[in-house]
Every structure is written in structure tokens, then in C-alpha cells.
Design a protein around this nucleic acid. Structure first.
Length: 369
DNA sequence: TGACCATTGTCC
DNA sequence: GGACAATGGTCA
């Protein structure tokens, strides 16, 4: 029997808003067997016993099991040390305590390298008490790693060069790349805290995440340099054409096409970028926001893409997700809106409907007309 | 300290 | 040889 409550649904909802990943992203991961295997939640229980569960994972379980009201810790379970308790005050720690014992995230995280990363824990300049991992080839405090899985991240260390200098090239797993690309698609520059969150979730070092984003920005920029002149020309000929860096969406088949009315519920974010003032970006904010390269990376990525079609890189319509109920209401609103349009299709022409509902460019099919 | 960028080194 | 993670220099 559980002995202590881990967190309530309300807490998970609140914390989830500050988490890096949305519920549906976690759901995606779960479909790839990335969630802890020893979770014993069932649809028959109103309490889930899951020590060490992160808040966003808690949110995930609350989401898939609507009848759940609590998540509790069961001390009798082996290899399940007490997980993080819900902090009494959120003020001092805006981000959730995502990380319980390492093994608790084993299934969500990627596998270990063949050669474990040798990483250091460095003090942070801020008050945030999170792991900051140093260069993979530094040599203290290696993180606990799990046995590698086929197809997962591999790090190969080779003896090379006359100076005896060793260099490691990490091969990120598909899942890691999936998450990295997904995050990059939404935000080109991450804050320190976001990179820390991401690195821990992906079982990568902070430096690796930072490097990946840096390299990817350059790669993206290079790609745009080579493709945008042509694309812009084509845009003038065809207003529906877009110049999308392939990496942005290559992992999102069927998820991102929101201009057509699909609802990317996973894209809801409350960014903690200090330069954005922790703004909650709802759909109105997005629509009102003047989208420049400054928006991508307020700190440094300036003047790189001015007048170069940044709008084509804008994340699709995003919605604020305040809570599960809010999400449901959004979905319901969408359904209602769609229903209204469908009903309208009985009486108006497609052009009239498009004029009436400019934000909905869905294929409007009159119902049984 | 982080971003950009050229470069190096590794893997496929 | 291409792709790309990692490195180091430079700048703000």
C-alpha cells in the first residue's frame, strides 16, 4: 500500500505548465515504450503508485487515466527510492523537480553510451539547483548509466592523434534527435534552464544539448541560405509554398499542420526564457507577435534572418494549456468551431466560408448536402 | 557566459 | 566523402 502521496492532479497540472514536454509528447514517447515499466497504474485504480515520478510524467498519467486523483509512493517497491515530494512553495523554484533517482527515468531517458560519459557537476551561477554536465570527455562524476540498447545513443572513444588527445563523437539516438528536433522546431535558442531540463530528460549533458542546438542553428542557417532564395521566388508565385527546413518537421508527420486546423496540443508551452519574461504564449500572443529572428533567439540570433522569410519558420499556432480541463475545452471549442463550419457549409459557398472563418482552411465538406 | 563560426575528428 | 558532434577562437 502506498504510504505517502506524491502529488495531486492539481499539482501535476500546475507543474506541467513549466515542464519542457507536453502531455502528448510524453504520450508519444510512451507509445515507443519509453515510460517506466514498473509503473503499476491501472485504469481500475484512482491512485497510481509511482515513486520518483516527475511532475510532467505525473501529468501524463493523470491525463491518460482521468479517474486518477493522486499519485503516491510505495516504499515497498524495490529500486524505487522516495521520489520528489511536491514542494510546499513554488516561488523559489519555478521549474518542477523533474528528476528523481536516475533509474526512475531509465525508460524515458535514452540508453547509456558504450563508454559512459564522464561528466562533472558544476555549480550554477543561478540559484537553480540542477545538474550541469560538463564536457563528455572530462573525467569526474560519471552519471549512472544503463546498459545500452540497440539503436540508441552510442559514444565511441578512440585513441587518436599524435598528441594522444581523445575525442568523442556521440551518436544521438533517434529518440533523442526526435526530441531535440521537436524542441528546435519550437524554439531555436533555449535558456540555460531549458537546456538543463532537456539534457536531463534525454540523458545527455548540458554541453551536448547546447552544442547540438548551436550546430543545428548553423545547419539551419546554411540550409536557408541555399534554399530560401528559390523558395521566396516560388512563394511569390504560389502563396501556399513554404520554405521549411526539413529538419523542422521531419519527425512530425501528421502533427504540425495546424494552419489547416489540426490542433497541436503538444506544442503548448510556458517558456521560461528570461528574455521573454516567462510569457505564456497563447494563440493570441502568437498572432499578435511580430515574428522576427529576434523572436527565435532574443539574446544573440539577431539580424541573421531579417527579411528572409522568417514567418515560414514560425511554429504553427500554439495554444496555452492551463489545465486538462482547459485543454479539453480547447478541443471542445475546436470541435464546435469545426461543427459550425461544417454546418455553414450547407448554406454557404466554400469561398464564403473561408471569408467567414479565415483561420480555418480545412477541407470543408458539406454534410449530406 | 553564451552565441557564432571555422575547423577538426569520427562515423557511416 | 558527406554528415555531424565536438572543439577552440572571437565577440558582445
Amino acid at each position: 500500500m502506498p504510504c505517502e502521496m506524491f502529488c495531486s492532479k492539481e499539482e501535476a497540472v500546475i507543474e506541467q505548465q513549466n515542464c519542457l514536454f507536453s502531455f502528448s509528447k510524453l504520450e508519444e514517447l510512451s507509445t515507443h515504450n519509453r515510460l517506466p515499466q514498473y509503473c503499476i497504474a491501472t485504469e481500475e485504480h484512482d491512485t497510481i503508485h509511482k515513486p520518483g515520478l516527475s511532475y510532467n510524467l505525473a501529468f501524463f498519467f493523470f491525463s491518460i487515466y482521468p479517474q486518477l486523483t493522486n499519485i503516491s509512493a510505495d516504499p515497498t517497491l524495490p529500486q524505487c527510492p522516495p521520489g520528489p515530494k511536491a514542494p510546499s512553495s513554488r516561488d523559489s523554484s519555478p521549474m518542477p523537480e523533474i528528476y528523481g533517482p536516475e533509474e526512475n527515468y531509465a525508460s524515458l531517458q535514452m540508453s547509456s553510451a558504450e563508454t559512459p560519459h564522464a561528466e562533472t557537476i558544476s555549480p550554477l551561477p543561478s540559484s537553480v539547483d540542477l545538474l550541469v554536465q560538463d564536457s563528455p570527455d572530462s573525467s569526474t562524476s560519471p552519471r549512472v548509466k544503463l546498459p545500452p540498447t540497440s539503436g540508441e545513443e552510442r559514444t565511441v572513444r578512440k585513441e587518436d592523434t599524435a598528441q594522444g588527445k581523445k575525442q568523442i563523437r556521440t551518436m544521438f539516438s533517434q529518440t533523442q534527435l526526435y526530441v531535440l528536433n521537436d524542441q528546435f522546431q519550437r524554439q531555436k535558442c533555449l535558456s540555460l534552464q531549458q537546456m538543463q531540463e532537456l539534457s536531463n530528460i534525454l540523458n545527455l549533458s548540458y554541453k551536448q544539448v547546447k552544442t547540438w542546438f548551436q550546430n543545428h542553428r548553423i545547419k539551419c542557417k546554411s540550409w536557408q541560405k541555399n534554399h530560401w532564395p528559390k523558395e521566396r521566388e516560388s512563394v511569390t508565385q504560389n502563396t501556399t509554398a513554404t520554405a521549411e527546413y526539413p529538419g523542422f518537421y521531419s519527425y512530425h508527420q501528421g502533427y504540425l499542420r495546424n494552419t489547416s486546423g489540426n490542433l497541436p496540443i503538444w506544442s503548448n508551452q510556458t517558456w521560461n526564457n528570461p528574455n521573454w519574461g516567462n510569457q505564456i504564449w497563447d494563440s493570441q500572443s502568437w498572432s499578435n507577435h511580430s515574428w522576427t529572428s529576434q523572436s527565435w533567439c532574443p539574446q544573440a540570433w539577431n539580424n541573421q534572418f531579417q527579411n528572409c522569410g522568417e514567418e515560414s519558420l514560425q511554429p504553427q499556432i500554439q495554444f496555452q494549456q492551463n489545465s486538462i480541463s482547459n485543454l479539453e475545452s480547447i478541443l471542445e471549442t475546436f470541435r464546435e468551431s469545426h461543427s459550425v463550419i461544417q454546418q455553414s457549409a450547407k448554406y454557404f459557398s466554400t469561398q464564403q466560408i473561408m471569408d467567414l472563418f479565415p483561420n480555418y482552411s480545412v477541407n470543408i465538406q458539406p454534410e449530406n448536402v
